[in-house]
Amino acid sequence: MTLTAYIEGIGLIGPGFANWPGSQAVLGGQRPYQPAKTILPTTSLLPAAERRRSGAIVKLTLATGLEAIQAAGLNAVNLPSVFSSSGGDGENCHALCEMLASSDRQISPTRFHNSVHNTAAGYWSIATGAMTTSSVLCAFDASFGAGLLEALSQVVADNTRTVLLACDTPYPEPLFGARPIPDAFGIALVLAPERSAQALAKISVSLTDMPADRFDDNALENLRTGIPAARGLPILRAIAQRADDRVVLDYLDGTTLVVDITLC
């Protein structure tokens, strides 16, 4: 069984990647990849109070999502959304666990509401005014694949556009030692059921057990394996190389995703 959709917009932020247009030369192989700490843009879209309260995962999600939607020439207010993150707001989680292990457990209300996995989805809805449905998912290292399948299911079953926002941010120590995500990374994709003028590529996805594609470049391969959301990078590489391709993405143990990419 194959699920098909058209990519209409891409957002990308990560170590050495400031946005999608600026990353294509690297992913296309014309320029070497030079890792550099991820720079998280601030957004003017959130009201000041919410902006102050929002952590790295919110900034990353908003920025990648808006980049993809603007590139597609769409308005976020009408789009359903799929948020997939392997861990939520790591800094906030650490602060909560530290307080709850101390003699003073009086945590702050903001800490608590930022602890839910759908924090970024909530801020997204407030920032964009979107009252549409959002699916908020986690599948640990398989989170990109899980988000992609959910988004494709929306497109195919409900014949609707949707935006996939797959984002991860690091934990501080000591959780970093148990879950060493090295930096923040996010991919956003606007997916549509029909080919339109702004379509970049058609993707057809099915489950397989073929081994996942690896990057020849060590630094890019470390990025792909180090941050769950970066498991989606082979799709972006194919689009950056401007050539039809078949790529295999890591998903669950023993189950991978084969993606046929046809440029539009």
Binding site: H117, S135, V136, L149, V156, G254
Partner: peptide, 29 residues
């Protein structure tokens, strides 16, 4: 060995699982 996911949208989580499952069954996966 099929698709597996946790839905975590706070207190709507396990209502929304019905929606994710519906779409994936309907899509034929």
């Amino acid at each position: 060995t099929g698709p597996a996911v946790a839905v975590s949208s706070a207190c709507s989580s396990s209502a929304k699982v019905f929606s994710s499952a519906r779409r994936m069954i309907e899509a034929g996966l």
